[in-house]
Design a binder for these strands. Structure first.
Length: 405
RNA sequence: GGGCAGGUACCGAAGCGGUCAAACGGGGCAGACUGUAAAUCUGCUGGGGUAUCCCUUCGGAGGUUCGAAUCCUUCCCUGCCCA
């Protein structure tokens, strides 16, 4: 039923940034192989932000590999923990969510996650199932297993502490709550981004404290966002969503800084290892042009979530709009209802939703970013006749046909 | 409980009675250039308006003043030290 243990190890370690303790994992795999029992592989997900992006895909793809090896993926929807708010990588306390909101988000999360995960070998659990049942004395018992010094070892806690940034007590409880998930499902392996290292280790410790065989840990690299600076996240707006259109997905990949190309190629697509090293060395030697490398990466990513045809189409579209500066194929048409068909352009830009305010629209016109039917408009008092359909280009990539209703 | 220091635009951070829609940096947007929505350079970055004009904003609520982000009162929030 399972592939040979060493082969499994190799697959598990590929593209992972850390796997430990290796000997324990090896032993677990051997046991599973002998007894023909799949390992339970845990991945926690945060339902406070249900919009998945390709940053999340790295760890999801790793989980998928486990599934393909025959192991059991257990997705923990942190509906209860979301009420605390994970402080990971955060300088501020997160707002708490209601249980209801998180349930709904969890559903959305699942829909997107199954773009990557197989629905076989998949179990979904909500952690309110066991956490909400804990009494205060249960919590105190749990809390007694860990010390303040230990918890302050965590980078973001100690950093915040040093910089006099508030930390609420309940945030200390977060890693412990997450650890209880591992206890509850008796996880053999837990997956996470490198920023989760601390939490996952606490999981091991707490499992031991509760007399359960400790989990092994597989850490995946964190993918930087399209800005190349920060970790990819929705709130920073530097993300490529799994639900983005092929066109946006392609374009966003093209916008990453050159230094990130290899990282995206490797971790967002999990290519064959020989493909990855070839790609990397050719890019290094200059044989592969950075732009072409990005195109290749963008195509692969779009293909993963759509199809090779869609990827090709997105590529053509990109060439057309940015290299040749032409309008894209598909442009929405908006009909507006005005008394007169002749209107100040500024007015139209706002009512059609292209500009958030007239001031903003004027600024863009002054800066030369507005085109009507391909002609740059530089007069902020310009009017536009909407009797016939007009093509408006607002900024670099917003195109819209506008016509009087 | 006591003492001290703070809360400023998307974020960080100046300003400490008028010249403040508020320096500076980051971010964002635009233009030029290009190999791309890379890099670099330049400009813009509260709202309305023809306007050297008006409106909204500096934790909340009041007050002093011709005039407040700047002074006073009070409330809320945060950090530090002491207990």
């Amino acid at each position: 039923m399972f592939p040979p243990v060493q082969e499994q190890m190799d697959i598990i370690k590929s593209y992972a940034s850390e796997v430990f303790p290796e000997d324990e994992l090896f032993a677990k795999l051997e046991k599973s192989y002998k007894n023909n029992v799949p390992l339970k592989v845990k991945l926690g997900c945060d339902p406070s932000k249900p919009d998945l992006h390709i940053g999340h895909s790295v760890v999801l793809r790793k989980l998928r590999q486990f599934q393909d090896l025959g192991h059991k993926a257990i997705l923990i929807v942190g509906d209860f923990t979301a009420m605390i708010g994970d402080p990971s990588g955060r300088s501020k306390t997160r707002p708490a969510l209601s249980l209801e909101e998180t349930r709904l988000n969890g559903q959305t999360y699942l829909e997107q996650a199954t773009k990557i995960l197989s629905s076989n070998n998949l179990e979904v659990r909500f952690n309110s199932e066991w956490l909400s049942k804990m009494t205060f004395s249960d919590v105190i018992k749990l809390a007694s297993k860990y010390t303040v010094a230990q918890i302050l070892e965590r980078d973001d806690f100690s950093l915040r502490f040093k910089n006099n940034i508030p930390i609420s007590i309940h945030e200390f409880l977060y890693p412990l709550a997450q650890a209880m998930d591992s206890v509850a499902i008796e996880a053999d392996v837990e997956l996470g981004g490198t920023d989760q290292k601390f939490n996952l280790i606490v999981g091991r410790e707490i499992q031991k404290a509760y007399g359960i065989e400790p989990q092994c840990i597989v850490l995946m690299p964190i993918l930087e966002g399209t800005d190349g600076k920060e970790k990819m996240s929705k709130s920073l707006g530097n993300y490529i969503a799994l639900t983005d259109s092929p066109r946006d997905m392609f374009g966003k990949v093209m916008s990453i800084p050159d230094e990130l190309i290899v990282k995206y190629f490797k971790y967002a697509t999990f290519p064959k290892l020989e493909d990855a090293s070839k790609f990397e060395s050719e890019l290094e030697s200059g044989k592969l042009h950075p732009r072409d490398a990005k195109i290749e990466t963008a195509k692969r990513i779009v293909s993963l979530y759509y199809s090779t045809e869609e990827a090709e189409k997105a590529h053509q579209e990109f060439e057309k709009v940015f290299s040749k500066k032409e309008a894209p194929d598909e442009i929405d048409t908006v009909k507006v209802n005005f008394e007169d068909s002749v209107q100040p352009l500024v007015e139209v830009l706002v009512s059609v939703g292209l500009a958030p305010s007239k001031k903003e629209a004027r600024r863009l016109i002054e800066q030369g970013g507005v085109y009507v039917d391909g002609n740059r408009i530089s007069d902020i008092y310009a009017t536009i006749d909407l009797t016939t359909k007009r093509l408006i280009k607002y900024g670099k990539r917003k195109f819209l046909y506008v016509q009087k209703d």
